[in-house]
Each structure stands twice: as C-alpha cells, then as structure tokens.
C-alpha cells in the first residue's frame, strides 16, 4: 500500500447530469431538505388541508329550506341547528358511548397488559403478542361481521346462555331501559360490545408499553416498604400505567366518536355522530350541516388531547 506519487489531492467532478445534480444538492443542504419535503407539503399541506378547510368553510354556509340548495353566505345558523334537541341527543349519545367504551377498555386491558408485561415468558409472550396483534390488524369489517355472528339470535352467545341456563340473565339485561332492546344485535349493549372489541387492542398496546417500562424492583420496593398488594397497585402501578391508559383512551375515544359503521350494523335506529354526518351529506344532501357535525368530534378531541397531554399521554405513544 505504498503511496502513489502523483495522486491528486482533489479529483475531477464525475461526468453526467445526475452526478452533477447530486453534487449541487450536497453542497446546498437547505435546498436538499426543501426538495425532500416539497412533495409532502404539496400533497398534505395543500390538497388535504385544503379539502379540510373547504369543508370547514361550508359549515358556515346554510341550506335553503325550500329549494334545498346551499346558500353561500356566512352564517352561524347551521351551528345553531346542532343544538336542536334531536341533534344534541346524537352528540350526547355518541360522547356517552365513547366514554363508556373507553372506561371498559381500560378495565379490560389492564390485566392483559400487566400479565403480558410482567409474567408472560417465551411462547406465552408470543401468544399474547399475536393475541393482541391479530384482532388489531384483522379487517375492521370482518371483526364487525364476526360480532354479527356472535350476537345473532340463533348465534353462539344465546346458545351459551341457554346451555348454562342463564337465559333469564340475558333477558334481564335486555329488559334494562335505554341499553336493552329486542335482542343484543339491535341494542346499545350490543353496539357497546362491538366497539369494545374493535378498539380494545388500541388500549392494550400503550398500557403494556407503559408497564414494560416500570422497573420490576420498584414493586418489590413497594412491598418491601410494607405496601399491601392493593396499595402497591393503587399507589405505584396505577399511577405509572396512567400515561399509557391516557394514550390508549385517545384512540378508543376518537375512534368511537367518528365511527358510523358499527352502530349502523349492530344497533338500533338512533343515530351516532358519524351516521349523522353520513346521512346529512348523502341522502339529505345538507353539506353545511354535515360539515358542522364533523367539527364536533374535532372540537371534542381537541379538548381531550389537551387534557391527555397534561397527563403525559404523549410520552407513552
């Protein structure tokens, strides 16, 4: 490896347009970054955000009640319509459902996440991983369809209750006003079950991630200092899992708020926000009201995210 005597200290530029272009970009790093982000800025910044803003603007228009045509003049009248009892009911019903689903998901997710994080090993760990990932990534519609099979009058759930001689219990649940109904597949209880099933993995994953980060000796330290298991749970484990629960709740809450397919397939005829948007823009042809309705989940989620951020949810994402 002796030194080549006449080797130049600086080589000539490579030939070719592409190499020249690449050289130019290398020597202008700001231009390079600009070129990298240009396509995304055009696509999302202009096409997507543009479409969102156009929608928002339409929520300030109104519809002429006689002709059914959109009147392109600024008004808050459409937002006023949101506060009519019928529409207000839709909003409250959706928010109540989202809250119930979120709370139930947190309760159900915790033991699964805790067991997977602390006790599961080797093939059990893999089973829990697959057990969460499989329903998470399975087709949304297939999951809804599966619940149609489960909840059907001739389906497995009624069969199980009958075999266990518990049909009376099911009937008692269905007899409860508001959440009950003729059968599970046309009741709020059924809608709730399907929502819970579909969004549960979105709660388990962040909670598990938060718990994985809790050092094992921490719980031993709590026990060592004289905490009962119940105290360890409420004073140590739960506070540490809370950011994970908050992060998971962002998904469960937001996804329930915006969904319009589950209540359409498993549920009664009373509308949720998503269905209201869909019918207003589709069959009713009232784009301004549909647009105003979409602002509701955005506003609720804005508030929710603000609160979740204060609880440290974003660190657990």
């Amino acid at each position: 490896m002796s030194r080549a005597a006449a080797a130049p200290a600086i080589f000539a530029p490579r030939a070719g347009l592409a190499a020249g272009l690449a050289d130019w970009v290398l020597l202008h790093p700001r231009m390079f970054v600009f070129l990298l982000v240009l396509p995304i800025t055009l696509w999302l910044g202009i096409v997507y955000i543009g479409a969102l803003i156009a929608l928002l603007i339409q929520s300030f228009f109104s519809i002429d009640e006689f002709s059914g045509m959109v009147v392109r003049e600024f008004t808050l009248k459409t937002y006023g319509e949101l506060f009519r009892p019928y529409n207000l009911d839709i909003i409250l019903r959706t928010v109540a459902m989202a809250a119930a689903v979120t709370a139930a998901a947190a309760v159900l997710a915790f033991p699964i996440a805790y067991f997977a994080a602390r006790y599961a090993r080797g093939k059990w760990k893999a089973l829990f991983y697959i057990g969460v990932m499989l329903p998470l990534w399975s087709s949304y519609l297939v999951k809804v369809y599966a619940w149609k099979l489960v909840l059907a009058r001739e389906g497995i759930l009624n069969w199980l209750f009958a075999k266990a001689h518990l049909t009376w219990l099911l009937d008692a649940v269905l007899a409860i006003p508001v959440i009950g109904g003729n059968s599970l597949s046309v009741s709020y209880a059924g809608t709730f079950l399907v929502f819970l099933y579909i969004w549960l993995p979105y709660m388990i994953i962040p909670v598990q991630a938060a718990l994985e980060r809790v050092p094992g000796p921490l719980l031993e330290a709590a026990a060592d200092l004289g905490a009962t298991p119940r105290q360890s749970f409420s004073l140590v484990l739960l506070p540490l899992a809370l950011p994970g629960i908050a992060a998971g709740s962002i998904f469960t809450f937001s996804l329930t708020l915006g969904d319009y397919i589950v209540p359409q397939i498993v549920g009664n005829s009373r509308l949720f926000i998503g269905q209201a948007v869909y019918t207003q823009q589709g069959t009713a042809g009232n784009i301004p009201l549909a647009a105003a309705f979409t602002v509701v989940p955005i506003a609720i989620m804005g508030l929710y995210l603000w609160g979740a951020r204060r609880m440290g949810a974003f660190d657990a994402l």
Binding site: A7, P8, A9, I10, F11, A12, P13, D23, L26, L27
Partner: peptide, 17 residues
Amino acid sequence: AIFGEAAEGVPPYRRNV
C-alpha cells in the same frame, strides 16, 4: 487548501482524503 488545491465547494467524495 489540500496540497495547494482549493477545497471549498468540493464534496467529500472528490477529496483524496
């Protein structure tokens, strides 16, 4: 300068360094 040759504006791959 590298061995007397001006190096400003020369990308890394063209330098015999």
